[in-house]
Write a protein that binds this DNA or RNA. Structure first.
Lengths: 160, 160
DNA sequence: GGTGAAAACGTTACGAG
DNA sequence: CTCGTAACGTTTTCACC
């Protein structure tokens, strides 16, 4: 480890984070008991980590079925030309579409990998028409239908 | 609660959910103002939705870099044989590994799609050795290195 | 669903190590 | 500089309308 990369997080912080990643409604009292600090100290640390964007968000996770999104699909997209402006355009479009839960720009055989939710196949097909077929810069795309979301990463997305 | 229960969300619930998906630390006062209900009514609705698992979790999102996970990789895995017991075994292993942020069992050209985080390439290679090379049931895997996590779905993962 | 009081929680000031 | 204690302000919870 480089000498300058100071450890921003001591053992206490790491324990706190691990708890908050599972449930951010855990009270400082409960956390305090588990990590061995006073509730006030816990709160101070959490506040600091939120300000430093170590904790980048605090969110409720909603069951997709409850809001009529029964399907999850994973799509690999290859662009026709890898031009920066076209890549940026594609990124922008994915950000706008509510169906796109996640979008990654990647190296390898594909250019983008998307996690998409839809109420049903018809809705997904409409989405593919809008996003892929009507987009001359999309060379090809390949869909994987999710049968079982074995593990859903509540823990550590990347962000900056 | 039985799985057949078709729960209905009215316009108020939907507005509340949308706010909570962005920040579950929004106070009932603020939500009340935005949706046009009293704070107590907001709280009652939130409580109900948590009990019904419409809200399945409340979590802090932690910046991966802050905890020394600089890389995100997306991996497609194909198994040698699609036997239920071997599939279940693979699911179990992914659940155990902290590197695996997300795991989906899918139809299509691959069997599983994983979102993996690692501190560096070396750590990822160790992971591939443990999970794939040493696993006789893994036929092949293909890695995509994430260059830009364009959009990270804080909103609507699937869950049961 | 609204109101208001009580309880729980987060926040801050202060003294101590 | 960060802890713990304790007072304070805010938010949630709950009985009642």
């Amino acid at each position: 480890m480089p000498p300058s990369s100071s450890t921003l997080l001591d053992a206490f912080d790491q324990k706190i984070l691990k708890i908050l990643q599972q449930s951010n409604r855990t009270t400082s009292d409960q956390i305090a008991e588990q990590v061995g600090l006073s509730p006030a100290a816990i709160q101070r640390r959490i506040k600091r980590m939120r300000e430093q964007q170590i904790i980048s968000a605090d969110v409720s996770i909603v069951n997709a079925r409850a809001i009529g999104r029964n399907m999850t699909l994973i799509v690999q997209v290859s662009l026709e030309r890898e031009r920066v402006d076209l890549i940026d355009l594609f990124k922008k479009e994915t950000k706008k579409r509510e169906e796109v839960q996640q979008c990654y720009y990647v190296t390898g055989s594909a250019d983008f990998i998307l996690v998409v939710t839809a109420a049903d196949m018809e809705e997904y097909e409409q989405f593919t028409r809008d996003m892929f077929f009507d987009n001359t810069n999309v060379r090809s795309f390949q869909t994987h239908v999710v049968m079982d979301p074995v593990k859903v990463g509540l823990t550590v997305p990347v962000d900056d």
